[in-house]
Amino acid sequence: MIPQVDHVIQMSHAARAKLRPVLASRLSIRTKLAIYKCYIRSRLTYTAPAWYALCSKLQRHRLQAQQNIVLRMISGTGWYVKNDVMARDLKVETLEEFVKMLARRAFSRADAGPYTSLRNLGPHYDRSMKGYQLARALVSKSSNEERCKLTDTGRQTNSRHKGLTQENSVPPEKMSGF
């Protein structure tokens, strides 16, 4: 994914360079944020639901840094203001939250659409948390409580552990691969 992330960063850097006079001008912050979301963030997140889950932590930080650079340019804040404080004040979500929203929207459209071939497009399979995730795993909850919910009868609802009672099953925190 390194070439993909490098290409996306290069495209957003080129757009930022062309828009620098506008983003550093005296326009209202609301207008500058709209310009950022339209021209730069769209380049950072183009088809991101398909590839963002495959990125390493370092690559995700590099993408988030591009957003932080633009937000700092828009607001005119100094180096002493934390990135999360600046984003909170500008009411801009992180790139990861935005990509999760895009992925949720894409999967729900595919699941609710009229085409049966697109339903359950990227099914969620039980996988080890080691390694990379699938795109559907990006939007699903990854906590142990979702994987091993207990019903009123004491039986686990997870299909992988179906038939095990609460007494003879291993606690979720002791399970390997979770």
Rank of each mutant, 00 (worst) to 15 (best):
I74G: 03
I29Q: 07
S56T: 14
M129R: 09
T47N: 06
I9E: 06
V99A: 01
A87F: 02
N120Y: 11
Y125F: 10
S75V: 10
L102C: 13
M11C: 12
N83K: 08
I69G: 06
V5D: 01
Q10W: 03
R16P: 01
A53Q: 03
L23A: 04
R20T: 10
M129E: 12
S108I: 08
P3S: 08
S128E: 06
A15P: 01
D6Q: 13
W79T: 09
V22I: 11
T31M: 06
F107S: 07
Y36W: 03
L44K: 02
A24W: 09
L33A: 07
L23H: 01
P3H: 02
R30K: 13
S12I: 00
Q59D: 15
T45K: 05
L118T: 14
L63I: 10
L95N: 04
P123H: 06
K57Y: 14
D84M: 08
A34C: 12
H7L: 14
V92D: 02
M86F: 01
I2Q: 12
L23C: 04
L54F: 07
I69S: 09
F98P: 00
R26P: 00
A65Q: 11
E97V: 05
P123E: 07
Q10C: 12
T116Q: 15
G76Q: 12
A34Y: 04
R41L: 04
V92A: 01
P21I: 06
R104C: 14
Q67A: 10
R88S: 14
Y52H: 12
L23D: 01
S25F: 06
A24V: 00
